[in-house]
């Protein structure tokens, strides 16, 4: 009971922190703009080239996941914001004020996770739904889907959840590494560079390892079909969430023992 009261007070404090810095609004707006903007770009170029695609390619075209592919870039904006939620406190020395106000550091981390997860989930879902509807509207003359199609709603909701998950992953990396540059480097490496490197391994190692990495595992949330061997959506969700939660767990262990 006692700790719930402290947690709730800290949730309020973290909410004030998040919205009282202008860069938060920018990062969330950029996340939304990239997700929706790239959907429009991808879908309209696909429409323009539709007749030049082969019949086979037209048949396997899957419009739901296709309209959500902007997430592959916008995840960086939300991930970096997650990193900054933690590292900006270390960089400015504010972390000492935070921990002097709330010495139970796990409570602070939990409050940050809660607030940032909710904020990025809301922004992620809005982005995902907007990207879907705009993409389908553009694709409608060729091959489009509706939200009532099998798997469509799950994929669109999954896209928002994926963004929130990457945000929390960034937050966790920020707790572990404490420095903005280092945490962003690890974030970019694990969601963008690592999959490319694993690709270079001899088969079947590349496919066996690749599907357990954060972005291929998380991709199962918002894609319906896959051209590569991948996990099922259920297993993919489990594997994907292990990254943000694992990073936060390691961060929590470090936080307890480290000097602020």
């Amino acid at each position: 009971m006692e700790s719930i009261i402290v947690l709730w007070a800290n949730v309020r404090a973290e909410w004030v922190k998040l919205r009282s810095v202008r860069s938060t609004l920018w990062a969330l707006a950029i996340t939304m703009a990239i997700t929706v903007g790239l959907s429009a770009l991808f879908c309209s170029t696909r429409v323009a080239r539709w007749d030049r695609m082969g019949r086979g390619a037209q048949l396997i075209f899957e419009p739901i996941g296709f309209s959500l592919n902007g997430i592959f870039l916008s995840q960086l904006a939300i991930g970096v914001l997650g990193v900054l939620v933690m590292t900006s406190e270390y960089g400015t020395g504010q972390i000492r004020a935070t921990f002097a106000a709330t010495p139970t550091r796990g409570t602070v981390l939990l409050a940050k996770m809660k607030v940032f997860f909710l904020a990025s989930l809301v922004v992620g879902e809005i982005s995902s739904f907007a990207a879907f509807f705009l993409g389908q509207a553009i694709l409608s003359s060729k091959s489009s889907a509706s939200l009532t199609d099998p798997g469509a709603l799950r994929a669109v909701l999954g896209g928002g959840l994926y963004l929130a998950g990457i945000g929390i992953f960034g937050l966790g990396l920020g707790v572990i590494l404490r420095r903005t540059a280092g945490a962003i480097a690890v974030l970019v490496a694990s969601v963008m560079i690592l999959p490319q490197l694993v690709e270079l391994l001899p088969s079947p190692w590349n496919d066996d390892i690749s599907k357990y990495l954060p972005s291929p595992a998380g991709q199962t949330l918002f894609h319906i079909t896959s051209t590569r061997p991948s996990l099922s959506t259920g297993v993919g969700l489990f594997v994907f969430l292990a990254y943000p939660l694992g990073a936060c767990l390691i961060g929590w262990v470090l936080l307890r023992t480290r000097d602020a």
Partner: peptide, 21 residues
């Protein structure tokens, strides 16, 4: 050492501190 986020206003800084306690 200063322990204030430079982008936050004086009131904003005190507000989150107040809320946390």
């Amino acid at each position: 050492a200063k322990s204030v986020h430079p982008a936050r206003t004086a009131r904003g800084h005190l507000q989150w501190l107040a809320d946390s306690n």
